[in-house]
Design a binder for these strands. Sequence first.
DNA 1: ACCGGTACCGATACCGGTATTGATACCAGT
DNA 2: ACTGGTATCAATACCGGTATCGGTACCGGT
Lengths: 348, 348
Amino acid sequence: MKSRKTLADVAAAAGVSKMTASRALRGDKDVSQANIERVKQAAREIGYYGNQFASSLSSKHTDLIGVVVPSLSNIVFPQVMSGVTNALKGTLLQPVFGVTDYDPETEYETLRNMLSWRPAGLIVTGIDQPPETRQLLKDAGVPIVQIMDIDGHPVDACVGFSHSEAGHDIAVALFETGLRRFGYVGRNLDKDLRAAKRKQGFQSALREHGLAFAGIIDGSDLPVDVTALSAVDCGRRLTADLLKRQPDLDCIYFSNDDLAFGGLCHCIAEGIDVPGDVALAGFNGLGLIEGFPGKIATSRTARKQIGEQAARTILETLEHSAAEMEKLHIMKPEISLGELAVTNDKPD
Amino acid sequence: MKSRKTLADVAAAAGVSKMTASRALRGDKDVSQANIERVKQAAREIGYYGNQFASSLSSKHTDLIGVVVPSLSNIVFPQVMSGVTNALKGTLLQPVFGVTDYDPETEYETLRNMLSWRPAGLIVTGIDQPPETRQLLKDAGVPIVQIMDIDGHPVDACVGFSHSEAGHDIAVALFETGLRRFGYVGRNLDKDLRAAKRKQGFQSALREHGLAFAGIIDGSDLPVDVTALSAVDCGRRLTADLLKRQPDLDCIYFSNDDLAFGGLCHCIAEGIDVPGDVALAGFNGLGLIEGFPGKIATSRTARKQIGEQAARTILETLEHSAAEMEKLHIMKPEISLGELAVTNDKPD
DNA sequence: ACCGGTACCGATACCGGTATTGATACCAGT
DNA sequence: ACTGGTATCAATACCGGTATCGGTACCGGT
């Protein structure tokens, strides 16, 4: 393979200096129209495309925005990534994604790696990074935006909402429709801190009314390895299990919509009326629950918008460079009770 | 914020030369144990993390594998990305993702951009790139793996399966269970070439039996803007529409599982027996159809494995550097007929 | 004819690492 | 004592761009 074309090749082909070629290609000023054409033509002819390493090394500047998410399996995060991509479209900036698998160690390594790329900004999922990771972010010297959670102390900017509040709020809303015997279904709560916060928020709301979960399943107490199942399938099984143990529940709160949807599948298969016999509540407002409109109560989170806002926050911080920006963007989820809302006279 | 730490700082702190520091940090040989410790210690103390630009520029070598997918909204592609990430874990290589939104122009730009990063390899979704893009890939001088489709001429290596064959095969399988009046529901076929290939494969199988689709809906003939809907919701509406126009269908083929699941939701809501009154067939074998086991026939594609195999192919090509590698990996989807299989083999 | 201003261009010095080469010290073998 | 080999380190020359700054040419004004 012949060696790659460099700027010097372009310059030679165009009969100008490297510097002029560089300026012409970047649309910098101080180049005559004639030379611009000549250089661009030459570049096209020899099939030249720049070398970001050399460019970024020399200019001490990149167009990269690092985006760190915990998972790709949960559709929520690709949607956030979509939002970021969206908001960055048309700007000079470009997202680079990293996945942590909900593992703090991997997260730390991923961030270190990203920083070695000297990104212009960083978007990180979650707010509860371990101290060492926080320090890394603090010292990074670039705009940092933490997303999806605001229950805690952000390193810098923050876009998201309170999960404990979200859990609390939907518990209250459900309670007000007259429901009293609540069950809970979740999994991976040890890893998914935000799901755990929702559960805890839900519980605290129950406590305020002198209630508690009448039944809890989080997957750890089951013989099957629920982590191997798809989320929907897992929800189906855990719901079956919970209802067998506690047939008198009138509402089940799931750690997310996928599980809740699995629960709905179980109920439909078993002829259990939803929400008549038992109400189901999930979290996120995913597209899949629209298959059975109104059956599942949920908190609709604005994933895409959070991604977009995070990206916009970075952009603004970069432009105004000032520290005087809006540091906190709360994008509170909207509660949707579905059929529960109409079965009760209560105003929403 | 003081200027970033460089290798020179580390070297100074450790009392050695830049070169020794470099070798020590990279685990290169020719460094005494004492100095290795000293340098690593110094690096940790002053919070040093390398500069990939300088490193890659100097060594003419990167650890990047570019991965280009058309979309993040379709869970299938994040799963492929997961597979790639997985297979690369433990190696020195690292994936970088790009999204094209099914737009050839964006794809070309994304690839150009990736190439300016001199990646060690490239994984590209699809096989039908326009000539200019193909040329770009050919001249890239790095291992290229095209994935998800083998109906065409790969630039180099290829991991996936034939979509037209997949459509053909499931049509045959459905036909053999006795189904005769087929309908089709899809959307975005102009963009999603692979879905179009499946439809065409399905049609050709029907033709072989003297049949044709008795009804086709692809969303373009509907008043509502189906692109704005979630896939499941869209499937629900299009199915409703199709069945209103053609109530006598005994099977509907959907362009994917999301739409098919929407169809199932419609049927359940309307009390239509599946697969008794009408059978439904989708594509992919997504987790969500496990919510109603056996209700939807599908072709289970090995997304994650395709991602893994693609990554492995790159790794091997890089190692053996030889051109004599297995260039084609066919990962044929497995047909799952669900309840249809039972009603055919042994009637209850 | 002289001067200041503007448009354009190129030589030079890096950016922060790594490959390469050469130097030094020390040791075993003869 | 001398030679060759090994282990360890440092100096130097880049990698392929870009920032900087100092020219040159040409213009209008006086």
